[in-house]
């Protein structure tokens, strides 16, 4: 026990030193900018504000991105130029095509389902008694790590064949109670992909719900009321008043969930390890690059991921531009 406390003391010591050092560096940078000579002060101050972020991003993301693009045209160890071989490989291997298709299924279903569930729930609980508690219950999975979620859902999906002992997974127990055959949810392709998607939807719905709920509250009550007095029923009110009112939030929600979905890695890795035809690009990329040492193929997969996210980014940039113009 004493060793534990000593260890704790040491580590928090490191943390405090780190925090103080960081504060000192930022403080000095800003202090110097503040005291910069009048001439060109604006420039120095701009530099002080922007450069820490830009330097870190250049090192940690921009350079790696460029390097990845280069590596995707090289052989497995990254030392020989092989042209488009890796891309050819990708689109000719049936397993990799499965991976690409799976990823598309993920990115089609997760944002849609999470948003629909989140929105419906937000509307259902709006102004109801115990709204806060109901919100917390659905938002809770958002605070759980993917690894933790994997453990939770493995218990849910546990399988015992009929006649070979009691079910210990709730889902199969429910099926048995209703007189069905227990299923191997994580092994039976292609449905296993959907059971993994359920986990991601479970996590992301809370995120969608919290943001959309706040947006709904932001729709001016007067307008809703006016619509109601005009004789619009609940569905028409929703369609004509609420939905347009929360469009901006919907874009943010769908964008964020889509990007998170395309990058999903831990859930698949923790639950099936990408086996049984459940792998997705982010997982396959890691497997290729690091488990098999096929850096070239891994990088090519990364680039595909890149390309898949691109439309989402372009759409958002256009929305941002429009907003700027309005302002």
């Amino acid at each position: 026990m004493t060793a534990f406390w000593a260890d704790l003391f040491d580590k928090f010591g490191v943390m405090v030193v780190g925090l103080v050092a960081f504060a000192a560096v930022v403080g000095i940078v800003l202090f110097l900018a503040d005291r910069a000579p009048k001439k060109g002060r604006d420039f120095w101050q701009l530099l002080a504000f922007v450069s820490p972020a830009m330097i870190l991003l250049a090192i940690g993301l921009i350079y790696p991105a460029i390097r990845t693009i280069y590596l995707s045209f090289t052989n497995r160890s990254g030392r020989e130029w092989v042209g488009l071989t890796n891309y050819e490989w990708m689109f000719t291997q049936p397993e990799i095509i499965t991976v690409l298709v799976n990823t598309l299924i993920w990115v089609a279903l997760v944002p849609t389902l999470s948003t629909i569930f989140g929105l419906a729930y937000a509307i259902f609980i709006d102004k109801s008694h115990g709204e806060k508690i109901l919100k917390s219950l659905v938002f809770m999975p958002m605070a759980i790590s993917f690894v933790g979620a994997g453990i939770i859902w493995r218990f849910v999906y546990e399988y015992r064949e009929q006649g070979f002992g009691e079910q210990i997974g709730i889902l199969n127990q429910l099926i048995v109670w209703f007189g069905g055959e227990p299923q191997q949810f994580l092994q039976n392709s292609p449905w296993n992909t959907f059971f993994l998607i359920v986990v991601m939807v479970w996590i992301q719905t809370g995120f969608a719900m919290v943001l959309l709920s706040a947006a709904i509250k932001g729709v001016p009550v007067e307008i809703t009321e006016a619509a109601r007095l005009d004789g619009a029923n609940a569905w028409q009110q929703f369609l004509n008043v609420t939905l347009p009112g929360i469009r901006g939030t919907l874009v943010v929600v769908i964008t964020t969930i889509s990007i998170a979905t395309l990058k999903v890695f831990d859930i698949v890795r923790a639950m099936t390890g990408g086996q049984f035809g459940t792998s997705v690009v982010a997982n396959e990329m890691y497997t290729q690059a690091f488990n098999r040492g096929e850096i070239g193929q891994g990088s090519a997969l990364a680039l595909i991921l890149f390309v898949m996210v691109l439309p989402i980014v372009i759409y958002n940039v256009r929305v941002m531009r429009k907003q700027k113009e309005i302002r």
Binding site: L46, V50, L57, K263, M285, S299, A302, V309, V317
Partner: peptide, 27 residues
Amino acid sequence: IKFKGAGAMFVLVFALQIVPLQMALVP
């Protein structure tokens, strides 16, 4: 702070969300 290229730089920062983490590990 008004400066040239602010818009482009901001879009670049936003777009960096798409860089898969896995590929940034080695460098």
